[in-house]
């Protein structure tokens, strides 16, 4: 039984290593580049994970591709170009600024600006007291208020 458990554990251990994939590099700098790239490239199968996070078959293959390209002396730009030629900008977590992606890049700032403008206007309105007529009582209301106060005073 103990041997069986040990065998099972060993089996699990090797398969875990196999699925993560250990890559060897010639220089530590290459390894850093590999890590950076696989974090910036998106896995297309599980779309909210990077190549580094994903264990999908395709992510595994693409990581291997990045690895071989790095060893072949390709630059980061070469590798990113290789990926976008095949999978489009979608494969990048930081898509390039283009007509189609302008909204993506500028949108949040436009919303922020809009928020600031609206907030500014609200604050100014409050401060100047104009615009919130609700706080002012008309003649009838004023009379009723006085009545209530008088009744309390009695």
């Amino acid at each position: 039984m103990r041997i069986f458990c040990l065998a099972l554990l060993l089996l699990v251990a090797t398969s875990a290593v196999a699925s993560i994939g250990v890559y060897e590099f010639e220089t530590p700098e290459q390894e850093v580049r590999f890590k950076r790239l696989s974090e910036e490239l998106r896995c297309l199968v599980c779309q909210n994970q990077s190549l580094a996070d994903s264990n999908a078959e395709l992510a595994l293959d693409l990581r291997r591709q990045v690895h071989t390209m790095i060893l072949a002396g390709k630059s980061n730009a070469d590798i990113v170009e290789f990926m976008t030629e095949r999978y489009g900008d979608f494969v990048l977590y930081r898509p390039p600024l283009r007509a189609a992606t302008v909204l993506l890049w500028v949108g949040p700032f436009v919303l922020l600006l809009l928020g600031v403008v609206v907030l500014g206007r609200l604050v100014r309105q409050r401060a100047s007291g104009t615009g919130n007529d609700d706080a002012q009582l008309d003649v009838a209301e004023q009379k009723r208020l006085e009545q209530i106060l008088r009744r309390r005073g009695e």
Binding site: Q47, T84, E85, R86, Y87, G88, D89, F90
Partner: peptide
């Protein structure tokens, strides 16, 4: 459909 990524090809 988010799975339909336009192909650059």
């Amino acid at each position: 459909n988010p799975r339909e990524v336009p192909s650059p090809l």
